[in-house]
Write a protein that binds this DNA or RNA. Structure first.
Lengths: 125, 125
DNA sequence: CTGGATCCTAACTGATACTG
DNA sequence: CAGTATCAGTTAGGATCCAG
């Protein structure tokens, strides 16, 4: 019977929340975007190559596309520096701070889930 | 100059958080999972067809796969009811509560982002 | 009602090489 | 250094039909 865990909202509100959820997930879809953002949170402005190193395994082409997506959604800025060999810096916009709670929540969940998986492996052994 | 918005962590901790982030995003990857979870939060236990209606646009095959993924990750339970035409109920597990903050954060962000986009359209007009 | 089987396509991802 | 071009592989997601 297990009392079902839920909290019913006003239908209209629920629909609005559903739409918001779709918008948000669309925005940060893709395999790398959250990681890129987390790295920028941690290190501040980073250059292309540094981001590539930090996002272990990503290829330049894919990184380039992900960065463009993020820039299009105004979560990061792209700045070309007039240095000897041209360098480019990527940094978070203020708007990107809005998404930080999401990332923190994801990290927390990831940590807990990892523990849970370990417990199961322990039980299975 | 713009003071870069960041907060540097201990490297080892950062790596651990990056891994957790990857784990978590992998878990809820896909176009529909968050929506399914949000609906279950809102309505409690739901049957296959109700979930399909709530996740407007999803096909049975895809819904089936998403539900299996969620069940494999122990975020939902699948219960077969011995009713006349067999029905099946899906409900959240306690573990799924851990992911609720993520969804709330995503919804919040989605709402804010929507407002932001509207502002831009207003400026463009 | 539930959801598997099949087929299909667009999008994502990757390896490698190359340019400004 | 910061990418883009090309080629190729994989796969997520959808359309349709059908079975228990």
């Amino acid at each position: 019977m297990a009392a079902t865990v839920h909290c019913e909202q006003d239908p209209a509100l629920h629909q609005e929340r559903l739409r918001a959820l779709r918008d948000a997930t669309e925005l940060v879809s893709g395999k790398w975007k959250f990681g890129i953002l987390l790295n920028l949170y941690n290190y501040g402005a980073m250059r292309f190559k540094d981001l590539q190193a930090a996002s272990a395994g990503i290829t330049p082409k894919v990184l380039s596309k992900e960065l463009q997506d993020l820039e299009d959604n105004q979560l990061i800025t792209r700045t070309v520096n007039a240095t000897k060999p041209v360098t480019v810096s990527y940094a978070l916009t203020p708007h990107a701070l809005e998404i930080q709670p999401v990332i923190n929540a994801l990290v927390e969940f990831g940590l807990k889930h990892r523990v849970k998986i370990k417990e199961q492996l322990a039980l299975a052994a």
